[in-house]
Amino acid sequence: MASSGSGYDLSSSTFSPDGRIFQVEYATKAVENAGPVLGIKCSNGVVLGCAKPINHKMVVATTGSYKRIHTCDTHIGCASTGFLPDARVLVQRLVEESADWQEQYGSKIPPGVLGERLGTYAHYFTLHGALRPFGAAAVIAGYDPDTKECSLQLLEPNGAPYMYYGVATGKGKQAAKTELEKLNLHKAPILAEDAVKQILRILYLLHAEQKDAKPIEIELSWICEASGWTHQGVPKDLLKTSQEWAKEQLEQEEEEGNGRRLN
């Protein structure tokens, strides 16, 4: 054997000698190569956004055949990245779990419970030799009508669902996380309307930093008072003004950056 770690990556049912499961790590790698997804928990809601690379000129992007943000229940939205077909299985599971809960208990599933259940489901696929872990990550935005609280979770291929103030995954997640941290969301949450702007700014920033970048299409959705505490697409007029703002910001930042370099 070439090194002590080799030969242990064919099945997720076997640990490597240093305690890793390579198949799960490879699945995480698959997520890191797909379009970025961002989420921000706000003082008055929660916002999701993603940038979809248009891989071919002839793709009709706006038809919804390429959707990355899904509504799983009136109060649950899911933005996914990674292999789209894998993500759709996770979305289907979210739909089923929340519908089952409503059927059983007559109330909406608390988003935290839903995230944990999806985690249990995804984790199952990391246990068996005959199964393959999901090559997708899901960012779940939720509103709990009973406690009147919003939540934001990220589920990764290993099956661990974490709660976040602001989260980024997919291509360029490190840069996006740095930008999110600058917003200081964990100390002073921002408004949903501002989160829309910031998410757009960060998505455009990631796109600009990429070298041979394909054109992108942006999807944005939110849960807030303006959407009746249901998961909806961000209204077109707000999207338009925010896009203009984001592009302006980036131009300004670029100018400042150039100026600094000259000094």
Binding site: Q104, Y105, G106, S107, P110, G112, V113, D146, T147
Partner: peptide
């Protein structure tokens, strides 16, 4: 088990719904 799942006290509505079913 609802309480264990959610970490909350159940609502009367939930109890009634379970009984109804």
């Amino acid at each position: 088990s609802w309480s264990l799942d959610t970490g909350r006290q159940p609502t009367v509505k939930t109890a009634a719904h379970l009984m109804r079913r």
